[in-house]
Amino acid sequence: MERRSEAARSRGGRDRRSPFDRFVEQAELRVSQAPFFFLCAGIVAAWLISLPWWTDLKTWQVAIHTVASVFTLLLVVLLENAGRRASESAQEKLNVIADALAALLTSSASSDPELRAAADRLREAVGLEERQ
Rank of each mutant, 00 (worst) to 15 (best):
A102T: 07
E124D: 06
S18D: 10
A125F: 06
E2L: 00
D21C: 01
E28K: 11
S69G: 06
A7L: 12
I43S: 08
E130K: 04
S50Q: 07
N81A: 12
I43L: 09
A41R: 04
R123F: 08
T55V: 01
L74V: 15
V77K: 05
E92I: 00
G13H: 09
L73P: 05
W54D: 07
G13N: 08
R22D: 11
A117H: 13
S107P: 13
Q91Y: 10
L74G: 12
A46Y: 15
E88F: 07
R17G: 00
K58Y: 11
V77D: 06
R14K: 05
V44D: 03
E6V: 01
S69P: 00
D99A: 04
A68C: 08
I64H: 10
L128R: 09
F36H: 01
E124P: 00
A102Q: 08
D120Q: 04
V44A: 04
A68T: 12
F36Q: 00
I97A: 07
D99H: 07
D99C: 02
E130N: 03
A41G: 01
T72N: 02
D120R: 01
A86I: 00
A82E: 02
A46F: 12
L51N: 12
Q33D: 10
W60P: 02
V126L: 03
P19M: 03
S107K: 14
S107L: 15
R121L: 03
W60I: 01
Q61D: 11
R30L: 12
L75Q: 07
A63I: 08
A98Q: 11
Q132M: 13
W54V: 01
L79N: 10
L104W: 14
L104E: 13
R3V: 02
A45E: 11
E114D: 15
S50M: 04
L79Q: 12
D15M: 04
A27H: 14
L39I: 03
A98K: 09
F37D: 05
N95D: 14
A45H: 11
D112G: 11
R17L: 00
D99Q: 09
E28I: 02
S18F: 06
R16S: 08
R9F: 12
I97V: 05
D112E: 12
I64K: 14
W47Q: 05
P113S: 09
F37A: 04
P19R: 11
V31L: 04
F20N: 09
K93V: 08
E88Y: 10
A7W: 14
K58N: 14
E88V: 02
A46N: 14
Q26G: 11
V76W: 08
L122I: 04
L115S: 07
E114F: 09
E2K: 04
R14Y: 05
I97D: 10
F20I: 04
R121C: 01
C40G: 14
A103D: 12
L73M: 09
G42D: 12
R17K: 02
V62D: 15
R14Q: 06
S89I: 00
Q91V: 10
A34N: 13
V62Q: 15
